[in-house]
Computed example of a mutant assay.
Amino acid sequence: MLIAQVTDIHLGFDPDNPAEFNRKRLDQVLRHLNEIRPRPDMLLVTGDIVDRGDAESYRRLSVALGQVNFPVWPCLGNHDQRENFAKWFPEIPFVDGFCQYEVEAGPLRLLVLDTLDEGRHGGAFCEVRAAWLNARLAEQTDRPTVIVMHHPPVEVGIEWMNTDPAEPWVDVFRQCIKGKSQIISVICGHLHRAITCQWEGTTIAICPSTAPQVALDLTPIDAEAPDNRSMIIADPPAFALHWWNGSQLVTHFDNADEHVMLAKFDKGMQPLVRSLMKERPGAE
């Protein structure tokens, strides 16, 4: 099982430009994902899929995602808008007004959550959404389960983008997953950087964006004293691949730029590959 992920597309940031920079970056990643082998079994699109929540951007996004050769499962981020999203993605389920649903992924079970609080940058997870998650988790307590959501529930050190661990929604979500050993990973976006950490007995995997990335700066920031630090940088458009190896979900991060090859598997490298493979248990 191979699950691809893109996040923070921000389509429509430059709404009147038919050659929009963010669309070009998205297309570059999607072409790459279509061409890689093994081919992904599905694509997760983890929020901020458009920039202004407008219907036209969702229309353009539906066209862009139409080029993907495998199923696409989106969730909503703080730049999204439920009503306009639902018009262009009517096949995506809503429950009690929230975009939350389950995906069967072979040996895995994916639970997609809605952390959107329209008009606010930070996340939200209310008792209604929590009740749905609790009910789903109670249904299958032994099956490996992945939570998919936009906002990470963790503080990562980039102060202006951080989730404050004291936010009420974080504790609501924590109480849902606490002690649920079937949860093997929480897959997120939002931060425009590749980040992983441990939280409440599971792994948080945060995907870098197809749009420009957030600069890595762990120094404190004073909102009243601009200091000319880098905030957004033009690093290549990126994605994640989550590979289920039968017992663990392994996350790889990469970008869609051309990679300069320094070595290839030819006869000169064959002895090294042979020797490495022979070290494996059971090899002849």
Rank of each mutant, 00 (worst) to 15 (best):
D41Y: 04
Q67E: 03
D51M: 14
G53P: 08
V50W: 12
G47R: 12
M42Q: 15
G53F: 05
G47E: 07
R59W: 02
L43H: 00
A64H: 01
A55P: 01
R52L: 14
D41E: 07
R59A: 10
D51W: 11
V68R: 07
G53I: 06
D54G: 08
M42G: 10
G53Y: 05
D41G: 15
S57E: 10
A64P: 00
D48S: 15
G47Q: 12
S57A: 15
E56R: 10
D54H: 14
L61M: 09
G66C: 12
L65E: 00
V45G: 02
P40R: 09
E56N: 05
M42L: 14
D41W: 01
A64R: 07
R59V: 11
E56Q: 09
I36S: 09
E35A: 11
D54Q: 13
E56W: 06
R37P: 01
I36W: 02
Y58M: 14
D51I: 05
I36K: 00
E56T: 06
R39I: 00
I49H: 10
D54T: 05
V63I: 07
L44T: 07
G47P: 03
E56C: 07
V45Y: 03
M42Y: 05
L43S: 08
V50D: 13
V45C: 08
V68C: 09
L61R: 14
Y58D: 14
G66D: 05
S62Q: 15
D54M: 12
P38M: 11
S57C: 10
G53Q: 14
P38E: 08
P38T: 02
V63N: 10
P38Q: 12
Q67C: 02
V63L: 11
G66V: 03
R39A: 11
R52E: 09
I36T: 01
L43V: 00
D41T: 13
L65R: 05
G66L: 12
P38H: 08
L43R: 14
A64D: 10
D54V: 11
D48Y: 08
Y58C: 15
G66T: 08
L61Q: 08
L65C: 11
A64N: 05
M42C: 13
E56H: 08
P40M: 08
P40Q: 11
R37M: 03
I36H: 04
V50M: 06
S57W: 02
T46S: 13
D54R: 15
L65S: 08
D54C: 08
D54S: 06
L44R: 15
T46P: 06
P38D: 10
G53A: 13
E35W: 00
R59Q: 11
P40A: 10
V50A: 13
R37N: 05
R60S: 07
I36F: 03
E56Y: 00
L43T: 01
V50P: 06
S62M: 11
R52W: 03
G66R: 02
P38V: 04
G66F: 00
L44H: 06
V68S: 04
G47C: 14
V68G: 07
L61F: 04
I49F: 09
